[in-house]
């Protein structure tokens, strides 16, 4: 079921674009990791405030709800680049060469169709909560301390747009592999055997283990 994949690099335009986009994707994923850390600190402050200073953090739940999209969406393209979104690869794992690239191209194209629609839909969701004429541009607010919701809602179409760029690059990569009948194409996640995946998985969890 799918973990990490090796992604090959070379000097081609595709590979250079891949690495350029990767820098953006990495930064966004790190942002998401820092948000997790922030969540932890927020809870410590909230619990400490309530139990030791009898002053609960106002709007604690509202702030968590604001942080969640940051954690949930920002790393989506990075994970797609690495082939980290899970799938059932019993069938694709058996394919080699052109049939494999064709299958990858088709499923990637389907994802792109979905995500283009999701950019539209999540943008509309954002737009309904945003009003230039209103105070704090807000037309939708959180329940407790009435935080404007549009910044959190905007994160979805932004992250999904980056994913769409990544999917375009992958379509290019798989298309190129299909056309040239390539063995090891650049800029796309390559299917690994279960053993390779497990080794990679084990590698990540044991880095720096004491």
């Amino acid at each position: 079921m799918a973990g990490h994949s090796a992604i090959l690099e070379d000097g081609s335009a595709l590979s250079r674009l891949d690495r350029a986009l990767l820098r953006l994707e990495r930064a966004l994923a790190l942002l998401s990791g820092l948000a997790v850390f922030g969540l932890m600190v927020l809870a410590v402050v909230s619990v400490g405030g309530r139990n030791f200073f009898a002053s609960p953090l106002p709007g604690y739940v509202d702030w968590i709800e604001q942080a969640m999209p940051l954690i949930a969406f920002m790393g989506i393209a990075f994970t797609q680049r690495e082939g980290g979104h899970i799938r059932m690869d019993i069938l694709v794992g058996q394919l080699r060469g052109r049939p494999l690239w064709a299958a990858e191209f088709v499923t990637t194209a389907l994802i792109l169709i979905l995500m283009v629609l999701m950019v539209w839909g999540s943008w509309a969701h954002f737009a309904r909560s945003f009003d230039f004429a209103a105070p704090m541009w807000s037309r939708d607010s959180s329940m407790d301390i009435a935080l404007p919701l549009w910044p959190a809602k905007l994160l979805a179409p932004v992250a999904f747009s980056v994913l769409c760029l990544r999917l375009c690059l992958q379509l290019w990569g798989f298309g190129r592999a299909f056309a040239g009948n390539l063995e090891r194409p650049v800029a796309v996640p390559l299917v690994q055997s279960a053993a390779e995946q497990a080794a990679a998985e084990a590698e990540t969890v044991s880095n720096g283990e004491g």
């Binding site: 969640m68 949930a72 969406f73 999701m118 539209w120």
Partner: peptide, 29 residues
């Protein structure tokens, strides 16, 4: 349909209980 589906990501992930998932993963690491 697109606008209905487009609500789901923000609407569903902005839940306090879901913040347990990243926290639990982080503890493990």
């Amino acid at each position: 349909a697109t606008k209905t589906a487009g609500q789901v990501p923000h609407s569903k992930v902005s839940a306090q209980e879901l913040s347990l998932i990243p926290t639990f993963i982080l503890i493990g690491y």
